[in-house]
């Protein structure tokens, strides 16, 4: 038996994204952000997107290109502190922003990927983060119902992958990537190194290839992947 080959051209995988889609994008700051897939989505042009991502990168980097091109109508995120452009789009009503507590965003995505409808948590009780959320009493204490998040497409950055879509991450580039790679109907991964079957040791795999639909090797790393000079 032989595992299927899911290696692809980036443009043809990204072409599956439709206007109005919900798109999860991995990364926390630069590490783990799939800069090349994001650029391909800008080139593809699908708009009215809901982007689910921890942060909005920095002006002129990462998903800021999608904000600049006007393709984003809604952003589900945790923190925009490093992107003044995203904050001004939010303040002028050009994008809708939903803030989540960071670990709750992670759990909602994890639940989506695990086939669970919601998780219960006491995070944010007594603050405005609880507003509008269903409250359930559990063991005598109030808990918020945090609904699962899924997406039409997830864009993932891996360090190494094989052609079946098994993925491995490095350092703090892991962050939301393995969670989002489980939580979308179509998962597209870019990888710095693409290996043949067997090239990635079974014990070294973070995301099992079953979750991944398309995997593409990066021909080069653009300057956006580099250390940010502040």
């Amino acid at each position: 038996m032989r595992l299927p080959d899911k290696s692809c051209k980036i443009a043809s995988a990204i072409a599956k994204i439709k206007p109005g889609d919900r798109v999860m994008i991995g990364g926390f700051g630069v590490p783990g952000t799939p800069m090349t897939l994001i650029q391909a989505l800008v080139d593809h042009g699908a708009d009215n997107l809901t982007i689910i991502k921890n942060d909005a990168n920095e002006p002129g980097m990462g998903i800021d290109h999608l904000l600049q091109s006007g393709q984003v109508s809604r952003l589900i995120t945790t923190h925009l502190g490093l992107n003044t452009h995203a904050i001004s789009l939010m303040n002028t009503g050009q994008i809708k922003v939903e803030f989540n507590a960071q670990g709750i965003l992670a759990e909602r995505i994890r639940a989506g990927g695990a086939g669970i409808g919601a998780v219960l948590s006491d995070i944010g009780i007594g603050t405005e983060l609880a507003m509008g959320k269903q409250v359930v009493e559990l063991a005598g204490k109030p808990h918020l119902v945090e609904t699962a998040l899924r997406a039409d497409v997830a864009l993932i950055h891996a360090d190494r992958a094989d052609i079946f879509g098994n993925l491995a991450y490095v350092a703090t580039a892991q962050n939301f990537n393995p969670l989002m790679a489980m939580a979308a109907d179509c998962v597209i991964a870019e990888t710095e190194t693409l290996l043949p079957l067997g090239g990635l040791a079974a014990n070294a795999i973070h995301t099992a290839g079953v979750f991944v639909d398309h995997v593409a090797e990066l021909a080069e790393l653009s300057k956006e992947y580099a250390v940010v000079q502040r």
């Binding site: 783990g32 992670a106 759990e107 995070i123 490095v170 892991q174 962050n175 580099a226 250390v227």
Partner: peptide, 30 residues
């Protein structure tokens, strides 16, 4: 380039450092 803290500063490892995903990180917190 792949090693930052939550504030975006570039940091380093020490012997015994561990990396994990965001769900695991907040499992530790909660």
């Amino acid at each position: 380039r792949n090693l930052i803290d939550a504030g975006g500063s570039y940091v380093s490892t020490v012997p015994g450092s561990a990396f994990f995903d965001s769900a695991t990180s907040f499992a530790m917190v909660r």
